[in-house]
Simulated scan of single mutants.
Amino acid sequence: MKEKIEFPDYFVTNDGIVVHTVTAFSEKDGGVIGIPKYFPLKKSYLGCRYILGKPYSDNFPTFSDSIEKIKKSHPQYIQFVEELGEEMIVFPKSKIKKVLKPKEIAKNILNHNFDSKILLDAKEYLKLVIDIFKFNISDIGIEGSIMIGCFRDSSDIDLVLYGKSKGDQLINNFNLLKKDKRIHLYDEDDEELILSRRYKNRSFETMSQLVEQEKKRTCGLFNGRRFWLQPILENSIVKEKIKGRKLRRIGYEEGQIKIVDASLGKYWPAILEGIMEDGKKVSIECHDPIYMNQLEKGDFAHIASNLYIDIRNKKKFIILAPWLDIKQKLKKVEFKK
């Protein structure tokens, strides 16, 4: 496989595993860092997914479960990745047979006609986003079950928007979508729907906090179907921050932090700078999109996750990520002495 693979691409291995890249720092020593999303089945079962007519297991309960499955079936793929400070799954490029590019999927959907209701909705929503915000189709990608081809009638429309400037434009003008009658942006009446997709205590404590967070996440309903339009940072920005690091996990950090720089906190991944209660300066990397656009400069937050140090320069990092099987929290709080 000579094709370049970058976040947020998916790829399919020779033995049929469907994998999601997890960070802009994706290619490593002739391989690609990723987390499996769907595994092929020998026999179908009620509720399984189908990809190109073949049965696949639905999502495992957590990414950690998927990682554990790979550790047992392909232990040779497990490598310590210094840039992230953890053992990760690194799939050899020689074992990858197909790459799925979100931009290509979006372009194909926009340029074709469909009988499927979800694909019709995806096409109409794409057209609306392009019209309202004056984006180019090359700025947008489609991922998730539509990208893979294993969607159901009730599936979401998962879009990604490439680039910081486009992300700023979207976030600052997101309410313009309400001009269209097919759009519903979340309010207090949607608590049950929102809660069905979120993990309590990781980033909120009350339902009002949850609704306020979700309003900032550029998501809502189109024709009654949940959509998600996630701005992602240019891979070059993230790579510049990650490449060459030599991280070592030095413990678990939990406490109050003051945000001193949130200029890259609106996107996926969200990157923040903060000062802990004991005066320790840390960089925060949030590779889970639930944390995008939640904190601003001067805010205080309760944070909990692994603490790392870059042994080159002694800089400290707190990383929140789906590949970490630990308690993780990041939620805004009032200042507490």
Rank of each mutant, 00 (worst) to 15 (best):
M1K: 13
K4P: 00
I5L: 02
D9H: 15
D9Y: 14
V12W: 05
D15K: 14
G16P: 14
V18A: 10
K28W: 11
D29I: 10
K43Q: 09
S44Q: 12
Y45F: 15
Y45A: 11
S57V: 07
N59I: 10
F60C: 08
I67A: 10
H74D: 12
Y77K: 13
I89W: 08
F91L: 04
K95C: 01
N113K: 03
F114T: 06
Y125R: 03
Y125P: 04
V129L: 07
K134G: 07
I140A: 07
I142R: 00
M147A: 15
D153C: 05
D153W: 07
D153F: 12
S155D: 03
L159F: 01
Y162C: 13
K164A: 04
K164E: 06
N172C: 06
E191N: 06
E192Q: 02
S196L: 06
R197V: 10
N201A: 12
N201E: 13
M207A: 12
S208H: 13
Q209H: 03
K215Y: 05
R217N: 09
G220L: 10
F222C: 12
R225Q: 05
R226Y: 10
F227D: 02
N235S: 00
I242N: 06
K243N: 14
I250E: 09
E254N: 02
G255L: 08
K258I: 14
L272D: 05
K280N: 12
E285S: 11
N293K: 01
I303P: 00
I309Y: 05
K315Q: 09
K315V: 07
F317E: 06
L320D: 02
P322C: 03
K327W: 04
V333Q: 07
K336C: 11
